[in-house]
Design a protein around this nucleic acid. Structure first.
Length: 201
DNA sequence: TCTAGGATCGGCT
DNA sequence: GCCGATCCTAGAT
């Protein structure tokens, strides 16, 4: 079984923007009965809590759905969008902040065949939040997992890949036109690897 | 209870 | 490039 060094809780207990940017190039590793699959993250978005109109916790909203967003950093927040797609987020900063990073896309590095099966003929394996969740078999039942613990079946790890700041682009977030000025904030972070980085180990 | 609308995707024009 | 699918969530009655 391949294992990677999991990101520690401290990694997530920083500003949401910094966590989003720092997650570029990291590995999202998923283990299920069907096997192991992993992607290298290339696209993330920061959601800045009560002051961010695009964020589910805007204005201090605290509901059953958003409960884990108010909890400790390093846990998963998974919700259903448009009645059919799941989105994976990572809670940041710490308890009471309501901030998170949306995982929007990555490149397959392990278990590509398994991902292809799960995507069942769709185009692209993990180049979108809904596709990534489908390829890694992530649903609302995976809400509230501890992403610092490989035992949870879903965690983030580091294989030493470096992402130079000069290769990172920041743009406005996708699909939040309703959020007024917040829709223009450059909180979407993209990394296009110069070449594909193979998994070392 | 009821209702409007959504952090998307894929099929069709 | 446009549009419908699909059903949960949150806020309003």
């Amino acid at each position: 079984m391949v294992e990677f060094e999991p990101m520690q809780r401290r990694f997530y207990q920083r500003s949401t923007e910094l966590v989003a940017r720092s997650l570029l190039g990291k590995l999202l590793i998923r283990t299920t009965k069907a096997g192991l699959a992993a992607v290298r993250l290339t696209e993330l978005e920061a959601y800045l809590g009560p002051s961010d109109l695009a964020c589910h916790t805007f204005g201090g909203r605290r509901t059953p759905r958003t409960e884990v967003m108010w909890g400790p950093a390093g846990f998963s927040y998974v919700y259903l969008v448009y009645g059919m797609h799941h989105c994976l987020n990572v809670v940041t900063v710490g308890e009471g902040h309501g901030e998170a990073v949306l995982v929007r896309g990555g490149l397959p590095v392990l278990g590509e065949e398994l991902m292809r099966e799960r995507r069942a003929g769709g185009r692209g394996l993990s180049d979108g939040p809904g596709k990534l969740c489908q390829a890694l078999s992530i649903t609302r039942t995976d809400n509230g997992l501890d992403l610092c613990d490989p035992e949870s079946g879903l965690y983030l790890g580091d294989d030493g890949t470096k992402v130079p700041l000069t290769e990172v682009r920041s743009l406005p977030r996708v699909g939040v036109a309703y959020a007024g000025e917040a829709a223009t904030w450059p909180l979407r972070f993209l990394w296009q690897p110069p070449t594909t980085h193979p998994v070392t180990e």
